[in-house]
Amino acid sequence: MADGVAPADVYKTLATKEGVDRAFKKLDEIKPNIVWWSSGNQPMQLLGSGEVAMTTSYNGRIRGANAENKRDFKIMWAGNILNIDSWVILKGSPNKDNAVKLLEYLGRTDRQVEWPAKLGYGVGSVAAQAALPADVAATLPTAPEHIAAGITVDANFWVQNIDALNERFAAWAAK
């Protein structure tokens, strides 16, 4: 996206070899100015200590840092990446019935509207997003204007390409 690819075309571009080359060429450009992080709260640490001027991060961490550590970090939504997490019931789980009940409970609109104020992350149902107070709704990744400004992770693309891209990325990053 930094190289001018429209959000809707990101995965189409990355599916071609030229697209991947283009992505790495862009990475080459910014490489000298990058500090890498590998676990969720590191970006807050790097930003807070002044080590970096801007960072990628999970939006909930930013809310957490602002609320708990009295930071004043701002989010730039252009080019954001939306990922939807899943709940899984493992095959053969001893408490399958209760797990299904839990999922049903978590899926209720009146439960979902409770989360954003506590976690800062978006909600899983369209009804819940609509039911949120406007000031909270506007801070979430699931706000319609934020979804429009970025891309949603394409799980199928990653299932097919993750190993090859990871390998190339690791080789590139370590150079």
């Binding site: 390998e167 690791a170 080789a171 150079k175």
Partner: peptide, 10 residues
């Protein structure tokens, strides 16, 4: 291949 270039480097 890429892995090899990486590990020579490392």
């Amino acid at each position: 291949g890429q892995d090899s270039a990486l590990y020579v480097n490392v």
